[in-house]
Nucleic acid binder design. Structure first.
Lengths: 141, 141
DNA sequence: CTAGAGGTTCGAGCGCGCTCTAAGTCAAGC
DNA sequence: GCTTGACTTAGAGCGCGCTCGAACCTCTAG
């Protein structure tokens, strides 16, 4: 598989794939006679895993560390495990954070909905601005 | 309240507070006789709200848009509501994403745990590398 | 034989969200 | 009066994660 097809199948751009190889996130790919990268299906699994790490907010430098440990051999398993466990805790914490923010968003939206309902029933609009306001004080954007 | 105290109480740095004012996320603060910013307690509520938006991944340019709408007056309520609703959907989607990644992480960690158990019981270590491997192929980091 | 699609390398550039520096002002305490 | 320290401004710099441009090469179809 050439880089273009890998790009399509992995969702990364060809540019990004080359960049990842450059920094060591992806292995140095075999080249064909013309010097072009030729990939094996198996790379997709590794990219998918990297994607999970990325989605969950792991910085590239940590993914790199993980990749290095992996390349260093089987005996680094325990450290890789530790990395993932630590990361998992961070993800859980972030998840909890997001959930609590969601609740706040919900109530905030409710406030707007109620304000609109009041506006539609009787003709006097009202303010709901006791919380996140700075309204007219900010003139220039 | 001076900027230093606000920094402590809001968790932002004084630098960041000035930066937010500059770009319009925070209102232009009143200055005292000596030209120093003097804040009212109420700013904390707005900062807390911004923090939620930030935590949930809203880019600054969108927060700015929200702030502008707010400054534009009460009639922009519906659009602000729309923004928040849209944002909420993104947050929900991201949350779901994270949760599914967490599951993958869990099973990945399990794999490592099992590998370690095998290593500890009989002396022959084993590989678990059918998935995210590129092991020895990557030499130079 | 030629055109065009898609590949190569190297290195510069970009968008984001801060973060920091420099040079100066001001107010309080010794 | 002098020092200290928190503040002011304008503007440069940074770390991250790409993203793109330039110049060149190679394979394939017509």
């Amino acid at each position: 598989m050439k880089i273009g097809e890998l790009a399509k199948r992995s969702g990364l751009s060809a540019h990004t794939i080359r960049y990842y190889e450059r920094i060591g996130l992806l292995p140095y790919a075999d080249r064909d006679a013309g010097g072009r990268r030729d990939y094996d299906e198996s790379i997709l699994v590794w990219i998918a895993f990297l994607d999970r790490l990325k989605t969950t907010g792991m910085p590239i430098r940590d993914m790199l560390r993980y990749a290095e440990l992996r390349a260093a051999g089987d005996h680094t398993g325990p450290e890789r495990r530790r990395m993932l466990e630590e990361h998992r805790e961070e993800v859980r914490a972030h998840l909890a954070d997001l959930q609590s923010c969601l609740l706040v968003l919900d109530t905030k939206i409710d406030t707007y909905v109620e304000a609109e309902q009041r506006t539609h029933s009787h003709d006097e609009p009202r303010q709901n601005d006791h919380d996140d306001s700075f309204g007219a004080r900010q003139a220039r954007t």
